[in-house]
Design a binder for these strands. Sequence first.
DNA 1: GAAGATTGAAAAGTCAATCTTA
DNA 2: TAAGATTGACTTTTCAATCTTC
Lengths: 142, 142
Amino acid sequence: MGQQSGMFALLHAAGCVEGYVEAKLSIIGLSLPKLVALSRLVEAGDSMTLGQLADRLSCVKSNVTQLVDRLEADGLVMRTPDPADRRSRIAVITDAGRKAYEQGSRIQEEAERCVFGLLTDDDRATFAALVAKLAAAGRAAH
Amino acid sequence: MGQQSGMFALLHAAGCVEGYVEAKLSIIGLSLPKLVALSRLVEAGDSMTLGQLADRLSCVKSNVTQLVDRLEADGLVMRTPDPADRRSRIAVITDAGRKAYEQGSRIQEEAERCVFGLLTDDDRATFAALVAKLAAAGRAAH
DNA sequence: GAAGATTGAAAAGTCAATCTTA
DNA sequence: TAAGATTGACTTTTCAATCTTC
């Protein structure tokens, strides 16, 4: 009993997988949110406005302010004024940030292979379809 | 691109479903962590030591201290001294807490039907098996 | 006034240190 | 000394209010 809930099973699996990847990333001092932020910066050519970063991370702007605070404290990102708009600030990835991104990406991919590698190709395809359906259902429900 | 990661798909689906249920629960002033804590108390016969609650919630004791602080502030739980051990404190669910639990459970089940109802019976069975496999893989990996 | 960013407060979680009792 | 709980510090997230600039 207590095990019949699809939602709790989903949340539990997500927590286990996330916990594993976070544990691996913590070895090099990264967290998943930090790695994702660095990834978005690299994808965009190493720099972006804080507001754009919030859009790309699908989160609220105050979250980015604080995430960039922590990344800046780690020396992985720097804030620069935006010459085009004095209200705006640009987050620029540093050399240390690019290095952390590369190591972190490798670790994340390796960890993911380690977890999802236990599924067959068929399982993975089925899983992707189901998870997409659930995400859509969650969003659609409002 | 960026969509080929099983982990991010899993995390995204979990976030969507959780967000939906949290939105529904917030109408009656509950959150998912609060509802789960109330459920554990009801299952155990309305009261439990804070340490036992931490075990049942699979979280750290300091988390329970603060969760019970919030539940107590909401009037859903009360702290009582443990006659058997003066170091220990017992969390007791209140009448308002039992009522919130009942309403919250109904809301959670209804929301879950709404999301998982979009899957076929086969889909649900497949999903349960996959999610269990992934959780096991995440735990096993350390 | 509206947009970009920050600040402050809150929820939820972790860890390390502390305090009281066993 | 070890166990039960709390406290303080930190991460991640949200929301509401504020400040500066457009």
